[in-house]
């Protein structure tokens, strides 16, 4: 039995030539960006936004619940803070690889998200709790004096007052996740990390610059949106300043 399969000689079609800018690997080729926006860059950008949104939303939900618990029972605060800090210090590349080695997670988006979420906890938990604790005692007393229950005071007085600190945490967490998600490519081949990885391997400058610029742009836009959201949610802060 012969090892190789042989058939009629293949037809080798033309695959289309790249522009001379591309084949010479010049610093930046707009022609490539235009041609591959649809099949490479926009796809990676959308995936990157998904990766980031999922991580920040889940990270916020977990941190919020933990911070409320730690606010109510202050003995919980140190252990939760320690665990979050330890997770935060694990080198990202190592954590991604560790999670990928867990057989039921493997090389998947879930593995990537677990790592990304774990990096948001330290900042988000810390800032939500700090924001709540910064609410002056006389404000809480006033709320109680007005007949608000503890729950009402939390939602109507303490949390709104903590919003600036919470948003500061959200902004740091979001920008961090945007940049960390590029490293997640080692276990989950999607997002802007994919074209960056490919560009590094093939020393293709245009792709590296384009994907890197998109990641920076995404971080700036996300940060800007959070600033706008904060302004909308805390109208009193603006009127007090003006």
């Amino acid at each position: 039995m012969s090892a190789a399969v042989f058939a009629a000689a293949p037809v080798i079609p033309s695959f289309g030539r790249g522009s001379s800018c591309v084949t010479d690997n010049k610093l930046f080729c707009w022609s490539w960006v235009r041609e591959h926006w649809g099949d490479t860059l926009s796809k990676a950008l959308v995936q990157h936004i998904e990766l980031t949104l999922i991580a920040v939303v889940i990270g916020f939900a977990i941190s919020f619940a933990l911070a409320l618990a730690a606010y109510r029972w202050s003995r919980l605060a140190p252990p939760i803070g320690w665990v979050a800090a330890i997770l935060y210090t694990i080198p990202s590349l190592a954590l991604f690889q560790l999670l990928a080695a867990v057989s039921w997670l493997g090389l998947s988006r879930t593995s990537a998200e677990i790592a990304l979420v774990s990096y948001t906890l330290f900042v988000l938990f810390g800032n939500i709790l700090a924001g709540l604790r910064e609410v002056p005692a006389d404000v809480r007393d006033a709320a109680e004096g007005m007949g608000l229950t503890e729950w009402q005071s939390l939602w109507r007085v303490e949390l709104p007052m903590a919003l600036p600190t919470i948003f500061a945490g959200l902004r740091i967490a979001t920008v961090t996740v945007v940049s960390l998600a590029t490293v997640a490519v080692f276990i989950d081949n999607e997002g802007l990390g994919a074209p960056i990885f490919d560009a590094l391997q093939t020393t293709f400058k245009t792709e590296l610059i384009a994907a890197g610029a998109l990641a920076v742009l995404l971080a700036l836009v996300a940060d800007g949106l959070l600033v706008i959201a904060q302004r909308l949610l805390t109208p009193w802060a603006r009127s007090a300043r003006s």
């Binding site: 999922i54 939303v57 977990i62 919020f64 619940a65 618990a69 729950w151 939390l154």
Partner: peptide, 26 residues
């Protein structure tokens, strides 16, 4: 006790969002 019940609800909500998001990530 109301605060406690509230916290349980928040925790459950957080968990639900987490699970839903995991599902949607798949």
């Amino acid at each position: 006790s109301t605060l406690r019940i509230g916290l349980v609800i928040v925790a459950a909500l957080a968990l639900a969002i987490g699970i839903a998001a995991c599902g949607s990530s798949n």
